[in-house]
């Protein structure tokens, strides 16, 4: 079967597709996260191996590492869609960047928060000016800057493009910022945060962590698509297809708090 992907580059076509994907993704994400929680708490040893064994608090790894990975991955996604949007001038790409940014900011905050509660028992401090911690904080500022710039500009076309340019500038600067924090003294570099070493982690711990990462990843998709649908609706509320959709739903019965569900049902009926 040949799928015409460009068909979904139009918000009109993507809206129902995202609507079908969101529940599936959300359920899958919830299942994976619950499985990872179960596995992480009941099937793993009480100590993290190594020269300096960490006690039960190491279990924060199951959310800390996936959250940190997601925070970086989502920034890459944000910058990539920004670039696509600026080059091809596609509205949906810009909407995607806006859909991804808040979720990315949440994961960045979570990486910092869980890191603080992991750092306290293992390093004896909630915060340290360690390169990775500091870079994660800067990443958080970049997400906030992106959202702040976008919301400060009223004209949505200018807002989209300005924020996209900022995201790309941020992406170019990130490695330099990371390097500068990592090596404040270029004569001699050192860091406190342990290197990530996936190979010498106990397999049950690794399983729980990777499943959680997959769960967070699917969750990000679900959240981004759900937000994308909101953004599409908001921006296109005066367009013909949204009017038709709402009118059709309104004709079916009184639009009330459950209007959204009626609308969904109606749309499914149309697309089926």
């Amino acid at each position: 079967m040949k799928i015409n992907w460009f068909k979904y580059a139009a918000p009109t076509a993507f809206y129902p597709l995202a609507g079908r994907l969101v529940p599936v993704l959300a359920v899958a994400a919830a299942a994976l996260v619950l499985f990872a929680l179960y596995w992480g708490f009941f099937e793993t040893p009480e100590r993290l191996g190594g020269t300096n064994p960490q006690k039960e608090y190491y279990r924060i790894i199951f959310i800390h590492v996936p959250a940190a990975w997601m925070s970086m991955w989502l920034y890459l996604v944000l910058a990539a869609w920004s670039a696509v949007g600026l080059v091809f001038n596609t509205r949906l790409s810009f909407m995607m960047t806006n859909a991804v940014a808040p979720t990315g900011a949440i994961f960045t905050f979570l990486a910092l928060w869980t890191g603080a509660f992991w750092g306290r028992p293992s390093w004896g401090t909630y915060w340290d000016w360690d390169p990775r911690l500091t870079s994660e904080l800067i990443l958080f500022f970049l997400y906030i800057g992106f959202m702040a710039l976008h919301s400060a500009i009223d004209d949505s076309r200018r807002a989209d493009r300005a924020a996209a340019l900022l995201a790309i500038v941020g992406l170019v600067m990130l490695p330099i910022i990371y390097w500068s924090i990592n090596c404040p003294d270029p004569n001699n570099c050192a860091a406190l945060h342990q290197r990530s070493s996936l190979t010498d982690i106990e397999s049950n711990i690794l399983t729980a962590m990777l499943v959680m990462t997959l769960g967070f990843w699917l969750y990000s998709f679900a959240a981004a698509f759900a937000r994308l649908r909101n953004i599409i609706l908001l921006r296109e509320q005066d367009s013909a297809w949204v009017r038709t959709m709402v009118d059709a739903a309104g004709a079916g019965g009184p639009a009330n708090a459950g209007g959204g569900d009626a609308l969904d049902a109606n749309r499914r009926g149309v697309s089926a």
Binding site: N230, V246, A255, A257
Partner: peptide, 16 residues
């Protein structure tokens, strides 16, 4: 996200 979706739909519906 769920609540903002409801709000948006209500508003669009009201306008319609």
């Amino acid at each position: 996200l769920r609540r903002s979706r409801r709000t948006i739909l209500q508003r669009v519906g009201r306008l319609a």
